[in-house]
Simulated scan of single mutants.
Amino acid sequence: MALSIVRFGLRTVINFERNAAVLSVASATKQFKLLHTQPTCNGSVCYLDSERELQRPRAALRRYSKQHGRPEEDRRKDSDSDSDSDTECKGFERSEFWRRKMRTVHNILDVDKDGLISFNDFLLFAERFKSLGHLDEQQAQEFISIIKLTWEEQWGAIDPYNFVTVEQYLEDMHHVLNDKTLKKKAHRWLPYLFKAVDKDKSGFISVHEFKLFFQCLGLDNEHAAVAFAVIDVNGDGKLSQKEFVKLGRDFFCSEDETKVSKMFWGPLIN
């Protein structure tokens, strides 16, 4: 009997030491992974892959940012794409001039002027150009589809509680410009704006047709005439679709205050 008790005690000690060794190895392995895991960044925050794994159950709750913008899960997912520069993990490094331009576009896209961009604002914005009647049925359908896809890719869910503040718009556009994939797709609706105001379908827009563009942006004809005189650098009195799209894209991408593209979306706000 005494011998059995001694054997049981020895077996218990051995099992305890074996389990302790396994736990020690597992802990060391986890620490090794943490030390050698590459960080993933979303434009303002960097995560270790292991940290993201721990956060996935929480992400299922679809937490929104404090500005009620895109879900944080969607914002992290976009960061897997390649970056145009190495500034993606360094937060905001854009000039005040660029910020003024982005605030200008946010104000234009905020069609109902409540200080927030919603998907309904996007639809109202698109409807202004559609209502000119210069897009055929197929072009109009494509335009709305691209507007919808752009919203989903940049700001997530289409629902009445998903809003984009000025601060959120600045952050998201900074992220878009640092991501090759998103940057290529971000302004693919620009050709449809051109086609919508190309009243005579000549493939060029005149100053009079450019005034239609500004009217759809909620701006007056005087601003349109001034802007057109500046961006029509060769003085031929017309803009091709290629010129129009390039000016529109340069407005978002450039921080050069001497570029004429700064006039494309009208007077800059403070």
Rank of each mutant, 00 (worst) to 15 (best):
F129L: 03
A229K: 12
D198T: 12
D256E: 01
D220C: 06
K262T: 04
A225C: 00
S24E: 15
Q154R: 07
R128G: 15
Y169A: 11
H208F: 06
H106Y: 00
V13D: 01
R99Y: 03
L34W: 15
V226D: 05
P191S: 04
S27W: 09
F228T: 05
E257F: 01
C41Y: 05
E72W: 10
A126G: 10
F213H: 08
I5D: 12
R18Y: 11
L247Y: 08
L212K: 09
R75K: 05
I158E: 03
T104H: 05
K180I: 14
A196M: 09
S95R: 05
V164M: 13
D78L: 07
F129Q: 06
L268R: 10
V176N: 03
G203A: 08
P57K: 03
R56D: 05
K130N: 03
D84G: 00
H174A: 11
V176Q: 02
L149E: 15
E17F: 15
L116M: 12
E51Y: 09
D220I: 11
A186P: 04
R99D: 12
Y47S: 12
P39V: 15
W98I: 03
F244A: 05
P71S: 06
D172M: 14
Q31K: 15
L116C: 05
L219G: 03
C41G: 02
K242Y: 01
L247R: 04
K195F: 10
K185G: 03
F97S: 05
M102S: 00
Y192W: 06
K113L: 09
V197Y: 12
D256P: 01
G91S: 03
F210D: 02
